[in-house]
Nucleic acid binder design. Structure first.
Lengths: 237, 237
DNA sequence: ATTCCTAAATGATAAATGTTATAAAAATTG
DNA sequence: CAATTTTTATAACATTTATCATTTAGGAAT
């Protein structure tokens, strides 16, 4: 399923058009491989079909910041009219994704306004997620940041049916989490242990378990509204 | 002029359409007043006509993070299909802005694909700016962050002809800068003094002067590519 | 099992930034 | 121009987070 469908009520023609797109070739990459590199550009948009990917930016001196995660169904690389992309996208796990020529996508958007708006909406939500990260990095403590990230990812996974009960597959290492929350791996490790000691989450064998969602939500000041979750839908998805 | 025009070559019909939009009523607000509040929603999009505005998010416990600045010509509030906006927008100086009914704007976008793509592109650049902020907050020191912010704003102001030589009007207080860079006002003051001592910038009487742009750019690791600046255009704009 | 590699954990110390309180300077207002 | 408010500056001290060096634990490959 395409994340876009969350943002619009699709007519059968819309759905047919989307399915047409998803018949485009599927590319597979191994964990760690790069999808598209900062400073380059290619006239295609992509839809992640399976696996996790992440966006990051490098600094000239070797530091790097992860600026977002991509989950199955996410549309990305919609860089219409931009000279080049400003960040790198790489596979965190083995992934597969569809590649749709930009021209084909643009033509479709002209014909189907509904799709066009859904694509815009997808970007707006990505943007809202980034703003929440800005609040995390600017104002929240390392502990709160990590908690917030766990809540974001768990909520997004729930929306696409990739959780079971209070747990979900979770391929991020402490190093990845450190690069996303803007702390050193050493410090992240300590914070991680605090969380465990507080019986908020358990993370092992690439599986995340949310032990006390209410308390975690409060501590991290997490409010899912920015993810455009209907308040009921998250419960019964 | 509308920032949109940077992102597409407009036909005369396009331009006419845009000018039609800009004949919409102009609202004036005093410094400090709120344009739209987080959690609310209104079926309009807006174009800042004069003055500076800023986007911010509040935390339940009173902390707040500025997540972006709006300059004359910027289109904002394009929250098509979103339940509610996730952040507040307020005037930093006295401002005036156009308000365009969303329905009217959406109809126009359906008719003029070029405009539609320019609007999307505008969002993509906003998003790219946010990612650069994420790198600042996550990886750069307070000094580098502040330098980067100065470079961003100076560059954007240059693009709209609001600089003269190496200086520009600059209404932000140290408090605002602290809320944008995620440090305390006390610390921001210290960093500000370092910059002055280093003869990098001078900020007084609401006027910013870039004393050594090359060195500032290097120290802050600033590369204007993400703002979609053609390398020449910034020089001769 | 042995080796190799990556991920996770620990401890000592240093650096960056936050906190609180207060004062000086500048801008606004009556 | 005096009064008030906002902005900038300073100092002492506390806390968070980074650094660096080393260790342990797990998986994957031989």
């Amino acid at each position: 399923m395409l994340a876009l469908e969350r943002y619009a009520r699709f007519s059968s023609e819309d759905r047919e058009a989307v399915e047409g797109l998803l018949r485009s070739p599927l590319t597979r990459l191994r964990a760690g491989e790069t999808v598209i590199h900062e400073g380059t550009s290619s006239p295609v948009i992509r839809v992640l079909s399976s696996g996790w990917a992440y966006r990051y930016k490098d600094l000239p001196d070797g530091r790097r910041q992860i600026v977002g995660f991509l989950l199955p169904g996410d549309l990305f690389n919609l860089h219409i009219r931009l000279r080049e992309v400003d960040h790198t996208i790489a596979a965190l796990t083995p992934i597969s994704f569809h590649t749709i020529p930009l021209a084909q996508f643009a033509a479709l958007m002209e014909r189907r306004a509904n799709l066009s708006q859904a694509a815009l909406c997808n970007e707006l939500v990505t943007s809202a997620i980034q703003r929440e990260w800005l609040v995390s990095l600017g104002q929240r403590s390392a502990f709160e940041r990590l908690g917030h990230l766990f809540m974001e990812l768990f909520t997004r996974l729930k929306l696409i049916g990739m959780t079971s009960g209070n747990s979900c597959g979770f391929p991020l290492t402490q190093n990845d989490l450190a690069d996303a929350t803007g702390v050193t791996p050493v410090h992240l490790n300590r914070v991680m242990q605090d969380m465990r000691r507080e019986k908020l989450v358990e993370l092992r064998c690439k599986r995340l378990q949310i032990l006390d969602e209410d308390r975690l939500r409060n501590l991290a000041m997490f409010d899912a509204a920015y993810l455009q979750v209907r308040h009921e839908s998250i419960e019964y998805q």
